[in-house]
């Protein structure tokens, strides 16, 4: 532990880290194109977890530390029918920026944007897994319930695919009869509970300040989702793709964690000034 915090301190002095430590909300991640395959991460000896004395880089400094960009291609999205939206009549206006156009009243997603959002979401999931966060898979479509639960089991995450009880997050102490650790990240494979109603978990997660990733179709509201991924949430093929991708990203994060730390990760350094 001491060793790690010392290393973090030494990085505080370096230019790059102080820049991002000054609380400027500058974007220093994911600047690569969605089409091309960015360069592979440097050899592992240059990254965190290597022997003492070698150069270490915080995973957050790397734009794609877990190499999640290579998990899927644009063709995979197309084959999984991610681009199909609902009919124009059920459009939620907040989904407009993600839509490529309307083909005979059927909305089609812009897969360039979907890929960018999905890569960001996968990166977040991998980082949370790397920090040993609790990840909860949520979805309320009966036909996908088993798939989501099985995927969660395979990657050590949790799943909730049944009716979402009111107060499950916001009143957890009463619901579970004791102090409960809430998830650190919720991944919604579907953000609607019925055709018209939003899943209760979306608002509850926002209330309890839990970060969320959500697959949002053209009839969903992306506002309360922290990392929305615009895409088709109805087809079994697309659900399988999302499950496969999130599982792979989480496993990558966990694997890296196992390599780097036995038990705990370094404390994040506290920034110098707290003005935004």
């Amino acid at each position: 532990m001491n060793r790690i915090s010392r290393i973090f301190k030494s990085h505080l002095i370096s230019d790059q880290f102080t820049k991002c430590n000054s609380w400027s909300r500058k974007r220093w991640a994911l600047s690569y194109s969605t089409q091309t395959q960015p360069a592979e991460a440097e050899s592992t000896s240059d990254l965190i977890g290597s022997k003492e004395g070698t150069k270490r880089v915080s995973p957050l400094m790397h734009e794609d530390f877990f190499n999640v960009h290579s998990l899927f291609t644009m063709n995979d999205l197309f084959d999984a029918r991610v681009h199909y939206g609902h009919k124009e009549g059920s459009l939620n206006n907040f989904m407009r920026p993600y839509i490529f156009g309307s083909r005979l009243e059927h909305l089609i997603f812009d897969l360039d944007k979907t890929a960018e959002h999905l890569r960001l979401a996968l990166n977040i999931a991998a980082h949370i897994a790397y920090r040993d966060g609790i990840i909860l898979f949520i979805g309320q479509t009966p036909q996908n319930a088993h798939l989501i639960e099985a995927t969660a089991k395979e990657c050590g995450a949790y799943a909730h695919t049944r009716l979402f009880q009111k107060g499950l997050f916001s009143n957890s102490t009463t619901v579970f009869n004791g102090i409960t650790r809430l998830p650190d990240l919720c991944i919604f494979f579907n953000t609607l509970s019925t055709v018209l109603e939003e899943h209760r978990g979306v608002a509850e997660a926002a209330k309890m300040n839990i970060a969320t990733i959500g697959i949002v179709d053209t009839n969903c509201d992306p506002r309360l989702i922290t990392y929305p991924v615009p895409g088709n949430d109805d087809s079994p093929v697309s659900q399988e793709l999302y499950c496969k991708l999130f599982k792979a990203a989480i496993l990558k994060g966990q694997e890296r964690r196992r390599l780097d730390f036995r038990k705990t990760i370094a404390e994040d350094p506290k920034p110098v000034d707290l003005s935004e």
Partner: peptide, 15 residues
């Protein structure tokens, strides 16, 4: 602070 906090700071949502 929440576990996601620094991750969010490093990778804020696109919009």
């Amino acid at each position: 602070k929440p576990l996601w906090y620094n991750v969010y700071r490093a990778f804020p949502p696109l919009n």
